[in-house]
Design a protein around this nucleic acid. Structure first.
Lengths: 168, 168
DNA sequence: TTAGGTGCAAATTCTTTGCACCCTG
DNA sequence: CAGGGTGCAAAGAATTTGCACCTAA
């Protein structure tokens, strides 16, 4: 059993209405794609859709086991990637070892704590409107862009926090 | 032996003067920190300092072996993390499996190809000056920020590219 | 009914560690 | 010459895969 990181200890929730909206979308997208709506998939998607923490596969696994003690970690992985392929989730690329998933598909930006790895969304109309410099579009087609702000989160400032290898 | 990704096939170089500047900095920082200047460290640092590709540990390993056939992959790892701890390198967090390192410590931004994983720097005075919204600084102290632009790079657009699991 | 989904266990991939020898300072 | 550094091999963590059974449609 791995040591829990700070951000894994304090699950925050997405508001209920939004979760229901995401679940509906899941059901219609899945049906349309001819993908079966299994109990596992529902529960796993709900776990991600209801979290604001950008959980890892293992975090989702832990969140889901009380309700569904027989799931296997590999089903969680397969389901998360399936949901990503269906366009229902987005991944953030591994930070400190593990890929992290999110169900927030709206344009937004990220705050990353380099101490504990906490990763939170924030909105900013001003940043949404950033121009893409030609220095960037020179490399190829541009699909999206967002700002990543790095720092030390309030919890870590206060606690000292278990300092894992930061990524600068 | 893993299949090479597009960006691993076309090593680009940093200009010579800049590499020399970085090597000098390395020597003085290492000396000051009481860290030994071994042949391995020099060669490994030069490999990262001279590349514009944000190489993984394994990419560095391959780049360095012709010159130093007896290095071990774990020495490459230890050296890269040492250099990072000394503040001479920065990491980008793993993308598609592996952590990637860079020696460019100036403020800059990133273009990421979601197909092949190519990751390139670009500069933009305008983006350098972007304001940090209070929605972000609310989470804690802010240390840095940069823009990440995602898209499909020119090589992949043309080639079709081996499509690895993209990170959206 | 039946193809797709799941659980289990084993395999892979990336990275770190323990230990004995080596080389820089 | 002493203590840090290196190479080797083995351990660990994260993720994927093969296979036989199960279940939603």
């Amino acid at each position: 059993m791995r040591i829990l990181r700070n951000w894994e200890k304090h699950p925050r929730m997405v508001d209920d209405l939004e979760v229901r909206r995401r679940l509906e979308r899941f059901q219609s997208v899945a049906r349309e794609a001819g993908v079966k709506l299994t109990h596992q998939r529902l529960v796993i998607f709900r776990a991600v859709a209801g979290s604001v923490e950008h959980p890892t596969a293992e975090t989702v696994y832990n969140a889901v086991r009380p309700e569904m003690p027989t799931v296997s970690l590999d089903t969680v992985y397969r389901t998360l990637w399936l949901l990503t392929d269906l366009g229902l989730l987005t991944t953030l690329g591994p930070r400190q070892g593990s890929v992290r998933f999110e169900a927030n598909l709206e344009k937004h930006h990220h705050y990353l704590c380099v101490r504990c790895g906490a990763l939170r969304d924030f909105d900013s109309a001003e940043l949404d409107a950033l121009p893409i410099p030609s220095a960037a579009s020179r490399f190829g087609r541009v699909v999206s862009s967002h700002v990543e702000v790095r720092g030390i989160c309030a919890a870590c400032m206060q606690a000292g926090g278990e300092s894992r290898r930061p990524e600068a």
